[in-house]
């Protein structure tokens, strides 16, 4: 029987090497392109089809989801957070698409690679630092001292706050990566059982595969939601400074 982790392995489809850099195209790259194309195509379809006062099916989906993200940005960043709406919105739709594409058999979940989620998380972390420093200047360091802390406790609080600051991008990336990898491994294990068992027993794990696939769909949406919520929370933290 094949290892359940086998489908996470990546093999180059088109070999490409520019200046010593390995830029080979593999399944993950193609899945990411498809994800981008779907997000772009969906919204182009909405705009090209002409916006109407009484929204059609696709326009309703786009409007409801955008309203949802708008509410999220308003709640966690505040009114001045609306300039980050574009970023948060794109992030959410891209994550949702990539997570959902992975559920189609034979495709690839790019968010099950720590490299992808880690790159996103580090970019977001650096972005929050840049926003914080450009908004508050040197005063930004006061984020390391929570309000209402006695002077005696400050030498203890600063390392604790530094650790929890560094933990942010790591927990952000590890959460998404671990959930996606775990879900797909469970699916692979169950499907392996279904395939290796005789038919009179194999329907049981196969039934579970179907159920867990439904659960995975919910997880894909919830994880994308958490990822974007936390991005909003982190941006809101550096804007408000407590």
């Amino acid at each position: 029987m094949e290892s359940p982790l086998h489908h996470f392995e990546l093999h180059p489809i088109i070999h490409l090497s520019i200046g010593g850099l390995d830029l080979s195209i593999n399944k993950a790259v193609i899945a990411m392109w498809i994800g981008m194309a779907i997000v772009f195509g969906l919204f182009m379809l909405v705009v090209r089809g002409g916006l109407s006062m009484v929204p059609g099916k696709i326009q309703s989906i786009a409007e409801i989801s955008l309203e949802f993200i708008k509410g999220m940005v308003k709640e966690f960043i505040g009114d001045e957070g609306m300039k980050y709406f574009n970023f948060v919105g794109s992030l959410f739709f891209f994550m949702v698409c990539c997570n959902l594409i992975g559920l189609i058999p034979g495709s690839y979940t790019i968010t099950s690679q720590l490299v992808v989620t880690g790159a996103f998380a580090i970019c977001i972390f650096i972005m929050t630092l840049v926003i914080g420093f450009s908004k508050h200047g040197g005063h930004f360091f006061s984020i390391l001292v929570p309000p209402g802390v006695p002077k005696l406790m400050i030498p203890f609080m600063v390392p604790i706050e530094v650790i929890s600051m560094i933990a942010r991008p790591i927990s952000l990336s590890v959460r998404l990566f671990a959930n996606m990898t775990a879900g797909h491994t469970v699916l692979a294990v169950l499907f392996g059982l279904a395939m290796s068992a005789p038919v009179w027993l194999g329907w049981l794990p196969f039934g579970f595969t179907v159920i867990i696939n439904g659960l995975e769909m919910a997880i894909a949406l919830i994880q994308a939601y958490i990822f974007t919520t936390l991005t909003c929370v982190y941006i809101g933290d550096v804007i408000k400074l407590h």
Partner: peptide
């Protein structure tokens, strides 16, 4: 609720790990 539940465990472990 799901969001909070999924956050808490990872948060606790990652901070200890970083320390």
């Amino acid at each position: 609720g799901m969001g909070i539940a999924l956050r808490l465990g990872v948060e606790l472990i990652v901070a200890t790990f970083i320390g």
